[in-house]
Design a binder for these strands. Structure first.
Lengths: 312, 312
DNA sequence: TTGTAAGCGTTATCAG
DNA sequence: CTGATAACGCTTACAA
């Protein structure tokens, strides 16, 4: 009869939620939150993840709350009202967003969220499930490729605020296997978003200082493309004078023909989004109770930006 | 006393919503929905809008619901449960999403949404507020620029499913003012996403057919960049052999130096997002009751992809 | 097995 | 003007 009349108690969740306070049960609201920064939302990295998330959440009929846009400056001090009210069933976080630890602590402390599931993407997080990629293996494959071309020194350039430690660790592992001193073979050079001139000068200085270093590893594709522009302006030709590698396979380094030149490691970002969403939904449905970590493989994509080092 | 004890009736919105059924009042949930397609979410066009939306909604402490990801195929038949439950205070829509009319009708028909505010971005919509850009003026400025360079014929290429009529109308207005037959001067050539080969052949055929037409207007930057790749492969040099223009200023047509070549019309997309969010929040707060339309100016950005036509 | 009543937290109403 | 009361729709404990 209920079905005939189109009656669905889910429609009046407000009443159910009210009543459930007595029995300390939880109401599933089919709503999950995504914590990210507007800064990240500018690039394809983010919207590939979003595409995977959207696909799975849509299928599971979950809605996605997504305007958490923390600034890099201050840690979050308050949760959105809808979270404190207990209407958000779970949360997705994303590596690279400032102050994730504080956010997680804040969520855990709030009675409106408590120990509901959190799934972290691209970075492990204490007490949360995670969907990661084989970062270390990616760095290893990249370095193997460069070593095979004859390079013996690499300059690793990345935001100083990011810690892609696994990536570099993979590079260094490959170096050790080739009998090279990993600290000599992979030199880290931070760059500073807030001071482009300084970063550029620092890059060119390092290239002059280490004449045998003719390969540059940008911490990700976005960084690599920026470095490419600086190198071009300084008259350094890629890959004749210097090889360049990225990470992610999200950006195009355009050759005159329009083709993508950038040798990189492809991360399965859409799949990361899918898996993270699926994991969160399983948690919410109670099909999983313990935090779980998934690692997805990455793939070396060799294009035109890498070549043997020029003769000394 | 309430303040001392940290008591806030907003925290128990469920109870308030329950009670309000009797008096037919509405509960503001500080939650708005964004209707878009995953297809759009792939490009900077979308995330510039999102950036503006996020900024204002964050400031007003509204949350954003954003996993409406309709496929192009089928019109929406059901609203997310959270909308039907009346927990979404208002909706933002975006031009280019399939079946917007059906969505609006569906919302209006659903007692859970009824006549709550809808703000449409980049396209007017019956019975809704809208934030638009001066499309026609943009087309006019582009055409003025081309006419000034000496062009007398332009090929307009765009998705056949999109109707950027105002843009073309602006072009034709400029032609009329120069005493040209607008239908002769601006020829429309649709292209077909599902059949790239056909679109490419059609483009090259048209160029051969109209030898005096040496300027191409891609309906937007994304389209223009795609056309640029096809032209390059066909050996057509930009801008020496043929000028190329886009619209939006969202994509880069990279010169060998990495600089952006594309002459285009900049749309203030972040500002569109900000205004749309602000408008929706004002509606929800009851500060505005009647639908309102805002039009923002656009700006011609002349770069290297336009030049005088080659001598006949 | 079926039926009844209480109560979740809020607010409108009505009596005092 | 103040203060008590009932009802929004649901779930559950308990009685029949």
């Amino acid at each position: 009869v209920a079905r005939e009349l189109g009656y669905d108690p889910e429609q009046a969740l407000a009443a159910r939620r009210l009543r459930y306070r007595r029995s300390e049960r939880q109401v599933v609201n089919r709503l999950v939150g995504l914590y990210f920064s507007l800064r990240q939302a500018r690039g394809p990295y983010f919207y590939q993840l979003l595409e995977g998330l959207g696909e799975v959440l849509d299928g599971a009929e979950f809605a996605l709350l997504s305007n958490w846009a923390p600034s890099a400056k201050a840690p979050p001090v308050r949760l959105p009202a809808i979270v404190s009210r207990g209407e958000v069933d779970g949360v997705l976080t994303l590596s690279g967003v400032p102050h994730i630890d504080q956010l997680v602590a804040l969520l855990r402390r709030d009675p409106g969220f408590g120990d509901r599931p959190i799934v972290s993407m691209m970075e492990p997080e204490e007490g949360c499930s995670a969907v990661l990629t084989a970062d270390s293996a990616g760095g290893y494959a990249l370095m193997q490729h460069l070593l095979g071309l004859g390079h013996r020194q690499v300059l690793y350039v990345d935001f100083h605020t990011w810690q892609n430690g696994q990536r570099v660790e993979g590079c260094r592992r490959a170096c050790r296997e080739h009998g090279l001193d990993p600290l000599q073979a992979v030199r880290a050079l931070p760059y500073y978003t807030e001071d482009e001139r300084r970063s550029r000068a620092s890059l060119l200085h390092s290239l002059a200082q280490y004449p045998r270093c003719r390969a540059i590893f940008g911490g990700n594709d976005m960084t690599a493309c920026l470095l490419a522009a600086w190198l071009r302006e300084a008259g350094v030709q890629i890959p004749q004078d210097c090889s360049l590698i990225g990470f992610d396979d999200t950006h195009t380094l355009a050759a005159p023909t329009g083709a993508n030149l950038l040798t990189t490691v492809r991360q399965p970002l859409i799949e990361v989004g899918r898996r993270a969403a699926a994991l969160l939904v399983q948690h919410i449905r109670g099909e999983i109770t313990e935090p779980r970590t998934i690692e997805l493989p990455v793939e070396l994509v060799v294009r035109g930006s890498t070549a043997p080092p020029p003769p000394a």
